[in-house]
Every structure is written in structure tokens, then in C-alpha cells.
Design a protein around this nucleic acid. Structure first.
Lengths: 240, 240
DNA sequence: GTCTATAAAAGGATAGAC
DNA sequence: GTCTATCCTTTTATAGAC
């Protein structure tokens, strides 16, 4: 590009230095959350982003690639924070047990592990966009797009394993399959809260108290922690 | 296209007397669950149903009306069974309390109420279609379609109120908003199980035990019952 | 890197013969 | 009630000027 006035033009029509790529990610994220993925056409996205229709194919190559970029941009930091919170818990508590070996051998409390897992996600509900990210995350498990399934595997694999291990140390009497199954339930409760963030009318109608993030986080931790501590259902035979 | 043996053709190509309307509902249900609602074109649906493209508009009027018919056909029986199960519990237990008045005044146990609520849905996981209905149900809360929001209100209003009342009697010490909030969590855990039914590879990968419906139901009841019995989080001030 | 213009296909919906 | 044929819109994607 030859002329320097492009900078001027960008500075007036858009924010100076705002990257088209970032604008596309923002607009796509908003539309995907508000209207759904399949319902958000590339035209609608580029219109909302204030860029040209051809920009998506130039910067991403296809709608599917844009979708993947939208999700990974948000998922990665959340899961990094989860892991770093868990690591901090394990590192801190390892000082207190006396035996100086095995820095990561300590066992955070159940509530501590759950907070490390849930807090980075629930914070999305407080975002200035009114929980839009929460909706997008909540939709992760139900979207039929193949890309989403791939994301679930790629982005949550390590988190799932690390937190399962931590939960097993916090609840040594609980068998591992039971731990995983109950984590599944906890994820469901969390995801449902996120997905319902878009429907204040439903939340009101159903009487779900809509207080701040802190109370929501503590409530969710309380509910899930109790669920994790529930007695194991004894293995029973199927009825004849 | 012009031959009179069309009737014969129907008799051979399809089941004799099979209603086109029902075939459309079945095909749409399958495609909506497998591929998503927006991704299922009318052409794909009519092709799968073995009927003509114009049949959808003749029998339903629009894709949206078809969508509503698909959901209501399945939601209504489930919610009816929920209510009849709950009614049976309340009726039965009212015999035991001695005072012959107020037939519905008795309080079923927490586990009983949860079973009445969860069992009719979890049974969908055993359907011969491999949990496809479960996927469709699990997707209810995340689909952006307006029709779906309307269905949530229309179909679940009475169920929500009746079960909230029953839970309040089972847990008299728990404030009503807390009851509703925890029921929200329970619905999320349930819905997540349903939605994950489509991904056996994920369920396997995450180590979720895939046993029969009975064990799943009892596990879910146990998890949720413990969550409902968790101590109430004390109201705290937001940090300064 | 960004734009206009357009290709090429697929979408929902309808008219009218049978 | 079912079919064929078609209208009109919208979609993703690309070509080529600037």
C-alpha cells in the first residue's frame, strides 16, 4: 500500500490503529452470541465491524476459521487463569505440610479447587457486554458445529485432567469415575447459568436472584461442593 | 410425475398410510438434533422424510411452525408425566399424616420431588434413537431462536411453579429465591447430561461413566439433593 | 490491505397442475 | 394432498481494480 493517507482515513472513520482483524473478532463474537452462529452471516458481521465483506476471507479465510478464532481468543485466557489459580493453591499449600519434598503434592480444599475452576468463567458475567461471553461459552456444549467439538477437546483437555486430579486429592474417598461424573454436573450447572444470562426475563420469571458475581460464585461453589460430597450411590443391579 | 400409480408408489416407497405430517416431524426432529436447527434446510428435511418440498408449507405453514410442532410434541408428554408423578407423590403421602383434610398438603421427600422432575427427562437417554431427544432438549436453553424462548415460557411455567412449591415444602428452611436458584443449577446439570449424550467420544474422554439410566438417575438425584441441602451462603457485603 | 462487483449455490416460500 | 416448477432473497466465496 502505497499512500500514507490510509492511516489518516482509518483514524477518522474508525479508531486510529484499530486492527480490522480485532474488529472482526469483536463483531463476530457479539453476533454469534446474540443471534447464533449459523444465523450470523458474514455480511452482518462485516457490517457490524464497519469493514468490507471481503475482509473476513482475507484475514481468516472462511467463516469456520473465524469462528475458531473467536472462541480460542476467549477460551485460552480463561483456562490459563484456571490452571494458574490451581497451581497457586497447590504451591501455597505445599508449604504447610512440613515435608519439604514434592512441591505440588499438597491438596487444596474442595471449595478452593472449585473456585479456581469456576471463578474465571463466572467473571464473564460481569463483563460490560452484559454476559454476552457467558452466553457464548454456555452455548459451547450444544452447538452442532464440528469446530466446537474440536475446541472442547483442544482447550479443555489439560484443564479437565488437572482439576480431576486436584479433586481426587481433595476427595480421596471418591472413585475417579464418580469425580469426573460430578465435575460434568458442575460444568452443566455453571454453563446453564452462563447461557441463561441472555434471558433476564426468564431469570426474573423463574425467580433466580440476580445478584452480583461474588454471591453467585459462592452459591455455585456451595451447591457443587455439596454435590461432590454426596454419598456415593451404591452399585445396584438393574431390575430384572 | 404424471402417472396414476402414485398411490401404489406411496404404498411401496413408504409405509402404507403413514402420515406425511408425522414423517415430517420425525425427520425434522432428527435433523434438528443432529445438525442444528438453522443448519437443517427444508429441502434436507423433506428429502429425509421422503416427501415433497412443498409438504412442509402445506402441513405447517413455515419452518418456524414446524420447529414449534417438533418441540411441543415431545415437551408436552414429559411435563405431563412430571406433574402426574408429583401429584401421585403428594396424593400418596397425604394419606399418612393422619389429618384427613388437605389431600395435597403433604410434603414428599426432596429425593422424591427430584425423581419426579428428572426421571421423565432422563428416560429420553434410553430411547432407541440414542439420546437424540436428549440433545434436542439440552439445546433448548441455548438456541437463539425466539420460538425456543417462547416454548420455555409456555411449556415450563406450570412445572416450574409446582416443583418450586414442592421443594419449598421439602426444604422449609430454604428461602424461595434460593430454591429457585438451586433448581436452576439442577436443570443445568441435567441439561448438560442430555446435551452430552451426542458425544460419546467426549463422555469417554472425560471419563464420564456411561451406565444405564437407573444409575445415572440415582447419581443425578444424589448430586442435586446434596446441592439443595447445602447450607445457605450467608449474605455478605461486596468487598470495598 | 481494502474496495467493488459478481459468481455460484442454497435458502424459504408460493403457484398451479394433477 | 401431493407434485413440479419457479420466484426472490440471501449466502459464501472470489476476481480484480485501486
Amino acid at each position: 500500500m502505497r499512500f500514507k493517507r490510509m492511516l489518516e482515513r482509518r483514524a477518522t472513520v474508525r479508531e486510529a490503529g484499530t486492527d480490522t482483524r480485532a474488529r472482526l473478532l469483536d463483531a463476530a463474537e457479539r453476533l454469534f452470541a446474540d443471534d447464533g452462529i449459523a444465523q450470523s452471516s458474514l455480511r452482518a458481521i462485516t457490517l457490524a465491524a464497519g469493514v468490507n465483506v471481503a475482509a473476513i476471507h482475507y484475514h481468516f479465510g472462511s467463516k469456520e476459521a473465524l469462528l475458531e478464532a473467536v472462541f480460542t481468543r476467549r477460551l485460552a485466557p480463561v483456562n490459563e487463569e484456571r490452571l494458574s489459580r490451581l497451581g497457586a493453591l497447590e504451591g501455597l499449600e505445599s508449604n504447610g505440610n512440613g515435608n519439604g519434598n514434592g512441591a505440588r503434592a499438597a491438596s487444596p480444599t474442595l471449595e478452593g479447587v472449585l473456585e479456581a475452576f469456576l471463578a474465571p468463567v463466572l467473571r464473564l458475567l460481569r463483563d460490560p457486554d452484559g454476559g454476552r461471553l457467558g452466553v457464548l461459552f454456555g452455548r459451547l456444549y450444544t452447538e452442532p458445529e464440528e469446530i466446537v467439538v474440536k475446541l472442547l477437546r483442544d482447550q479443555f483437555g489439560e484443564v479437565s485432567e488437572r482439576f480431576t486430579a486436584a479433586l481426587m486429592r481433595a476427595l480421596p474417598e471418591l472413585p475417579e469415575p464418580e469425580i469426573r461424573w460430578r465435575l460434568h454436573c458442575a460444568v452443566g450447572a455453571m454453563g446453564h447459568l452462563l447461557a441463561s444470562a441472555r434471558f433476564p426475563e426468564i431469570a426474573r420469571e423463574f425467580g433466580v436472584p440476580d445478584d452480583g458475581e461474588d454471591a453467585t460464585l459462592r452459591r455455585l461453589i456451595g451447591f457443587c461442593a455439596a454435590g461432590f460430597r454426596a454419598p456415593v450411590v451404591p452399585a445396584t443391579e438393574t431390575k430384572p
